[in-house]
Amino acid sequence: MELLKRQEKWDITYTHALGEVASWFFVQIRDNAKIYGRRCAKTGRVLVPPRAFSDQTLEPTTEWVEVGPGGRIETFTMVYEPFQHLPEPPYAFGFVQLDGADTAIGGFFKGVDLSDPAKAAEKLAIGTRVKTVFADKRVGDLIDFWFELA
C-alpha cells in the first residue's frame, strides 16, 4: 500500500540570557580582544570559559584572571561534514588550555592546510603551542577568536 510521510520544519527563535559572568567575558573579547577566566577561591583553579560558580566545589568564583593569548592544544579534530550556520568543511576545531587557565576552551584552528589529514594532524598534535588570534571586527561571540600555531 501507499505509505505516507509528513515533513515538518519548525522555525522557532530562542533568546538566551547570558548572565553577568558570560556577558562580561564576551564584552572583553569584543571591546578589548582579551580572554578572562574566573578563579575559584577554594581551589585556586581558573575556569575558562568563565563560570559564576565552580561545578566541582559549588562555591561562587570570586575573581577575573586574564588568560592566554598563548596556550596548548588539549584535543582536536578535523571535520569533513557540513553543518548549518558553520564554515564550509573541512576545518579543524578542538580545545585549548590557555596560559593561566586550568580548563580548556573550545575554538577553531586556522592557518593549517587540511588537504592531507595525516600531515595536518601532526601539526595540530596534542600538546602543540598555539596563540589566540582575534578578528578585526568582533561581535561578542566565540567566533571572534581562533587559534593558530605559535
Binding site: 530562542y14 538566551h16 547570558l18 558570560a22 570559559p49 579534530t77 571535520v79 561534514e81 553543518f83 558553520l86 576545518y91 576545531f93 576552551i105 573550545g106 575554538g107 577553531f108 561571540d141 566565540l142 567566533i143
Partner: peptide, 13 residues
C-alpha cells in the same frame, strides 16, 4: 548556547 553552540559539537565530534 553560550560557549559551545558555535562549534560543530555533535556526538561524532
Amino acid at each position: 548556547p553560550y560557549f559551545h553552540r558555535r562549534l560543530p559539537l555533535d556526538e561524532a565530534s
